[in-house]
Design a protein around this nucleic acid. Structure first.
Length: 273
DNA sequence: CACTAAACCTGGGAGC
DNA sequence: TGCTCCCAGGTTTAGT
């Protein structure tokens, strides 16, 4: 699914198309994709509302409307939100179609894990999935001291800690493995065993990897597309993710693939300690 | 509290 | 070619 770099890329590519546009019509083909308070319908909630801002928190995309309401989107594994300048037919995986003054937004999701949640004005601060999130990894509240304190004494694997959205938000399986490789740290090390110098290397690697992911327009391993329907290119810069048993690009040893915290994890036995 | 498994879904790829 | 099994970018919840 879209991790932070992918969601940020979707936000940036959609913004010029949809900001200032008014929602004219909403069609929900699969009701499970659109969550909203009972007694409200998608059409009644969104019709004639203007999209005034596009935000992002972790892996959540936030569509802010002119009445203070917000549509919170989480793409999970295969969700996508694409803008088309001209109306077009969807396919079997097109669950929501939003007609704007000019053009259409299509929400598609092969696996149906993702959700669009309508949150009425003033209620965003009560949304648990957002309030639980840790700091933005590329922002200022994510500082080395904070990161070191969160990992200190932790017995859980460092890989699991990176995927824990309450410690720092936005990392998923791809960028967690890539950051660990770049920092030279084994994914199954108990988080509390990292020396401060290693925490610093990882802190830097997390921020650099995500920044490079955004610069590349995200990683298209299979389904991911940005707001224009285009693929990203960070898959060309992956060093370990999806490369199990292939030679390490740095030392040539075959990469190992193991399970850490229930997730497939690829690492180099020569470069990571 | 910490960790695991299951649940939510569909489809691609490997192996036979 | 076709069938079965395993796997996949995520998160929540139930169970041990």
């Amino acid at each position: 699914m879209p991790e932070l770099p992918e969601v940020e890329t979707i936000r940036r590519t959609l913004a010029p198309h949809v900001l200032g546009q008014t929602i004219k019509k909403v069609r929900v083909n699969w009701p499970g994709a659109f969550v909203l308070p009972p007694k409200l319908t998608p059409a009644r909630a969104l019709r004639e509302r203007e999209i005034v801002a596009l935000g992002r928190r972790g892996k959540y995309l936030l569509l802010e409307l002119d009445d203070g309401a917000t549509v919170v989107v989480h793409f999970r594994m295969t969700g996508a939100l694409v803008y088309y300048p001209r109306a077009r037919a969807g396919d079997a995986h097109t669950h929501v179609v939003v007609n704007l003054t000019n053009g259409q937004l299509h929400y598609t999701d092969q696996r149906k894990f993702g959700r669009l949640q309508y949150v009425p004005a003033g209620e965003l601060a009560t949304l648990a999935c957002l309030t639980k999130l840790g700091p933005e990894p590329t922002g200022e509240d994510f500082c080395l001291e904070y990161f070191a304190r969160k990992l200190d004494g932790k017995k859980t694997a460092i890989k699991a800690a990176l995927l824990d959205q309450t410690i720092v938000c936005g990392l998923g399986n791809i960028y967690a493995d890539e950051a660990l490789f770049r920092a030279g740290i084994l994914p199954f090390r108990p988080a509390g065993t990292l020396r401060l110098s290693e925490v610093f290397l990882l802190y830097d690697a997390v921020r650099l990897t995500l920044t490079q992911g955004i610069a590349a327009g995200g990683t298209t391993f299979r389904d991911y597309r940005d707001g224009d329907g285009h693929s990203g290119s960070f898959q060309n810069q992956l060093r370990v993710y999806g490369r199990g048993a292939q030679p390490c690009l740095t030392c040539g040893l075959p990469l190992h693939k193991v399970r850490v915290g229930g997730r497939a994890s690829v690492y180099c036995p020569g470069c990571q300690h």
